[in-house]
Nucleic acid binder design. Sequence first.
DNA 1: AAGATACTACCTATTAGTAGATAGGCAAAA
DNA 2: TTTTGCCTATCTACTAATAGGTAGTATCTT
Lengths: 185, 185
Amino acid sequence: MTTRETIIDTADHLIRSNGFNAFSFKDISNKIGIKTASIHYHFPTKSDLGVATIKEHIERFEYLKKEFENKSPLQKLNGFLSIYSQIKSENKVCLVGSLATDLNTVEDSIKNELKNFAELVLLWVTEILTEGKKQKMFEFQTTPRTKALMIITNILAIVQLSRLTQAEDFDIVKEAIIKDLRPHI
Amino acid sequence: MTTRETIIDTADHLIRSNGFNAFSFKDISNKIGIKTASIHYHFPTKSDLGVATIKEHIERFEYLKKEFENKSPLQKLNGFLSIYSQIKSENKVCLVGSLATDLNTVEDSIKNELKNFAELVLLWVTEILTEGKKQKMFEFQTTPRTKALMIITNILAIVQLSRLTQAEDFDIVKEAIIKDLRPHI
DNA sequence: AAGATACTACCTATTAGTAGATAGGCAAAA
DNA sequence: TTTTGCCTATCTACTAATAGGTAGTATCTT
């Protein structure tokens, strides 16, 4: 990994563990053994680093999409949900959830990039649901987009909420999402 | 309102607009025209102020519960969901959603008080759903607690997510929650 | 030699928090 | 009734630590 990639990776970890406003260049400096001034060389401002971190997520998301291109809607949805299982197991939250609460305090560049990312995710889940309904693999009453919003909000927020209720609640909700889509099983 | 109450009120506003780590005693000082040292008189540490803010929410929540005591499950659920409509209209997020992302950075006192609050909310929604199912007013397949988790995560996260997608998505999800519980209508 | 990368050293602003002074209100003692 | 003293609430003035960011210099790689 290049230094630049290492910085982004560490920033990503810190944003999703502590929040955008609770991490500093010094934190990264301490973690990867590089001076804060050197981080500024790669990312002039904190916002630049924030934007780069979101862009990295977008790239990884596009890659995941491609990986699941020829799989079934159910496999795709499970793939999507397992991202959050990973996040949960690391005691983090998802990038959208983390930055959405800080939205009023960040620059427009971050806001706009995050909008792009959220739109991308919503679009993919909507597509999965549309495809799944057509194949009679999924059952639901609302529009695919609305159902996608329901599922995304479920999984995004249970990552956060299960920190406060019980860790097991994450899997309970994850399974309930799938079960709800496949009542005939 | 006493000074103490005004401070809590302002802190609440700032926490839910900007996040716990993005507000300072100076922000409150500027807003209400009192020196930061005077805020420390009422709340020795920032954590003390955080805890007091959650306690205030708990009290208001208990009051709301009492107000709806003799109403129908549907009225109760609508009452619960309308809290979030209010939050959304003010461009804030809910306290649980805001602090849950900052959870790794706050003191245990805040963490524990927030757990109490979250447990209280989950309990009430679970009760509403149990009652509604018994009265055949609501229909759902999972346990009431699981369904409560689904609904709370929906409404909590759509407040955040609709900042990124479209503001109308909030009402779409809110209506879908009710419709899903009452498919016979 | 030249560009990329990292460094030292610094700056200014802000943070949470503290010490000590002051002012007003209230109540018991003189 | 006046005085004494305490309590509440606020203030001014300060601290040490940390924040994001910059200028100029050194080092490494090609």
